[in-house]
Amino acid sequence: MKVSECMTRDVRVANPQETLQAAARTMADIDAGFLPVGENDRLIGIVTDRDIAIRAVGCGYASDAKIGDVMSREVRYCYADDDVSDILDMMAEQQIRRMPVVDGDKRLVGVVSIGDLVKDETRQTGEALCEIARPSSMHSQVI
C-alpha cells in the first residue's frame, strides 16, 4: 500500500510568524498535536504541542512568541508514493508518530500518522508502534 492511500490530505499549515497561542488554538480546533510550518509555499519546520509546552512555556516564552522561535527545523518527511512498510520502518527507527507527506516537487500534500497506518493493523504496525514508544534520548527536550 502507498502512503497516498492512507494519509490525511486536509492539513493546516502554520506560518512561522504566527503566535504560539494561535498554534495551540489551531491544534485544539483540529484535535491534533502537530502542525507543519510553511513559508513561501515550502515546508520549513514542524511545531508540536510538546514544543509549545517544553521549548516555549518551559523556557518562559510568552503566548505571543512566534512559532518560528520554537519549531523543529529538522523535518523528516516522506513521499506520497512511498510504500507504507518503508515508512513504518522509518517512523520506528526515528521514533516519529507523524510525518509530512510531500509530492515530487517537495510540496506538502498531506500528513501520515501512526494512527493512519494502524488502520491496516499489520504486525509491522505493532512493531513500529513499540519502537516509537520506546524510551530514548533521540528527541529529548531537556532544557
Rank of each mutant, 00 (worst) to 15 (best):
E74P: 02
P100R: 06
I52E: 01
D49H: 10
D82S: 12
Y61Q: 07
R25T: 15
Q17W: 08
E74I: 10
Q17M: 12
L108E: 09
E93I: 09
M90D: 13
R25F: 14
I30K: 10
R25E: 15
S113V: 13
A32R: 15
R98L: 04
I30T: 10
I30N: 06
T19Y: 00
I96G: 02
G58N: 08
M90I: 14
T26V: 15
C59F: 11
I30Q: 04
E74R: 15
S85R: 14
R107C: 14
A62C: 10
Q17P: 08
A65T: 00
P36F: 02
V111L: 11
A80R: 11
Q95T: 06
Q95R: 14
V57G: 04
K106V: 10
I96N: 01
V112P: 01
N40I: 05
D103F: 03
D31V: 13
G58Q: 04
V70T: 09
L43C: 03
V111H: 07
P36M: 05
I54K: 09
K106P: 03
A32C: 14
G33K: 06
G104H: 01
A56Y: 00
N40Q: 14
E74M: 11
A62Y: 08
D41Y: 08
A32F: 15
G110M: 03
D49G: 14
Q17H: 11
